[in-house]
Nucleic acid binder design. Structure first.
Lengths: 348, 348
DNA sequence: CTGAAAGCGCTAACAC
DNA sequence: GTGTTAGCGCTTTCAG
């Protein structure tokens, strides 16, 4: 029934053209040493037969697959999918394909099988774009992992032994705090992300350090932990208002929770920013549309991903050229403040 | 400098074990015909050498790669990334890897090179998860595409010649309309998605047909077109209120725009749902958290993706077994109504 | 139970 | 300019 849908091979092209497979191969790879006439003829035959060379046969012999392994987690969230979006674009541009592996929570603890699976498919390099949560990156320190394959880590704590690309969350949070301070806020509370996340801890540390650095008290009542979700932002904001009645600003660790906080304040009739100013983090599209428009910290995940891919490819291709790869780098991108109505109290 | 990081091969394992590569291969594939002792010995050696068979060498000889090509677009949006999320999970479970290709707008028009690139990497099947926009799927009708490779289309208009998996947008919109009608609304406006999207047209058609079916007038002033974004929801809602003063309900084509509509109504002091009821579409996590909580239509993209992958794999493996594949199917999943405060006017 | 030979589709390294 | 040979890492087939 199925006439064995066998792909067109280089052999058939060669046969039709009456040349050896090598000549066809040379045409495919744009080698100079083929006469113009044969080249033209072969090209035409390739067209007619709709011949498409097998990338995997090539990988096998060349030991290069032009494929990147990408490890991600939590694609249903906006951050990871934005990053993946950037990776696919950058990889496409560089002529690399992407082998995608999304981790479930349980898999993150033991990376070895994941690396092995990717390596068994001959990826040229691996981009590890999994958020650092709890102990899930402990294995990095033990460097028990050989990592003979070029690997770039995204959004993880910088590390002397690995190449990492990340956004400076601490700096971003400092921007937020400095902005609120400038607006005259002196009782700044915090709704944190889940503190087993490294990024959440960074943002919270900056909040705390800023208060200390400006001789403002830091009490446990001044902050609440959420879980990034909008849903968690509602009880968090409510609790914070109760615990910290003098509060005149909230730095919220992400926009989702910040938008919920807006809702809670509205419901209670608290004026924003006059009574309480709000700053979020991430700059999701919605943050510009809500009332009042949310001041936030923009992190450019797209750029993050592009830099990571470029870095990755540079390492890969240097390796192919036998060059020394040099020490692993950490590239840190700086987020920016997007000031909107939710925090602007005074014209400056 | 680089000691040529050559992978461990089956040959080396065989050499260490003092057997032929065939015997190792048999152990790898759990063939019965190896003596227990040799099997154990070889397994141990595999462990020690951390040998990992080359999946691509296997693909080459077996003509099966256990890899699915996934074509997507607009990963920065929630819908596509949810679907991708479901695909990765289902594929993982079935033991298939994923080769991801994200299209930019310009690429969608001409699918041939995309298919070719995936086929050159020997994917066993292709999942086409690109929204149907404008003429971007025109090529499907011309069936100029041979599609010798199993292909499943997601979220596209059903089609006699291709296997498709989709959610019934028309039905979902009917649910929304019937619900509003039950709540006593008789002047139901619509904020549509961009009408070059097939899904947006489906939702709008159901709105219009419902009105006609219930002897309610349909005028151009009763609907406005948005572009799915929260930002577009604001002017859309404002315009609708002006054009259609008697309006007592809005069916909004997605939640992002619906949340913006909530904001606009709040600002104008319009009570929801008492004066105007709102229903959205998608059930994004935020929709439960805003005030008032948004009634919406839930589409289960996760399930959609799982069904697609299962369908895909079934087709692939039937093909391997030489079975006839049978006619292409269209699988339609039904969305459900999530009734929340934004539309509930009366206890039932 | 085990091995030898052949070959998947392609290209590196040589010959001619 | 072009062809030959060998081999990437594995498995099929068939012989022992």
């Amino acid at each position: 029934m199925n006439p064995k849908p066998t792909r067109t091979t280089i052999k058939e092209v060669a046969a039709v053209a009456g040349v050896s497979t090598m000549t066809v191969s040379r045409v495919l790879n744009d080698r100079p040493d083929v006469s113009l006439t044969t080249r033209m003829r072969i090209k035409r035959i390739i067209e007619e037969l709709e011949y498409q060379p097998s990338a995997i046969a090539r990988s096998l012999i060349q030991q290069k697959s032009y494929t990147l392994g990408v490890v991600t987690a939590g694609l249903e969230h906006i951050g990871p999918s934005r990053i993946l979006n950037g990776i696919t674009r950058a990889a496409e541009e560089a002529g690399y394909a992407i082998l995608l592996k999304e981790l479930s929570d349980s898999q993150v603890a033991n990376p070895t099988p994941i690396f092995q699976k990717l390596l068994s498919r001959h990826v040229d390099g691996i981009i590890w774009a999994v958020a650092e949560i709890g102990e899930n990156h402990k294995w990095l320190e033990n460097s028990s992992l050989p990592l003979e394959t070029p690997t770039v880590f995204l959004t993880t704590e910088p590390n002397k032994t690995q190449t990492t690309v990340l956004i400076d969350n601490y700096y971003g949070a400092q921007l937020a705090m400095a902005h609120l301070f400038e607006q005259g806020c002196r009782n700044i509370g915090h709704i944190a992300g889940p503190l087993d996340w490294w990024e959440a801890r960074q943002r919270m540390s900056a909040w705390k350090d800023f208060l200390i650095g400006h001789n403002m008290p830091v009490k446990d009542a001044y902050w609440v932990e959420g879980d990034w979700s909008s849903a968690s932002g509602i009880p968090a904001a409510a609790k914070l208002l109760t615990q910290y009645p003098e509060i005149d600003a909230i730095f919220v660790a992400n926009d989702q929770m910040a938008l919920s906080a807006l809702q809670v304040l509205h419901k209670r009739g608290i004026r924003i920013p006059a009574e309480i100013a709000i700053v979020g983090f991430d700059n999701i599209p919605e943050s510009a549309c809500f009332y009042p428009a949310l001041t936030t910290i923009q992190q450019n995940q797209h750029e993050l991903a592009c830099v990571a891919v470029q870095q990755m490819i540079q390492i890969i291709e240097q390796g192919w050229q036998g060059k020394d790869i040099g020490a692993p780098q950490s590239i840190v991108l700086l987020p920016t403040l997007i000031a909107r109505e939710s925090s602007i109290r005074q014209k400056s």
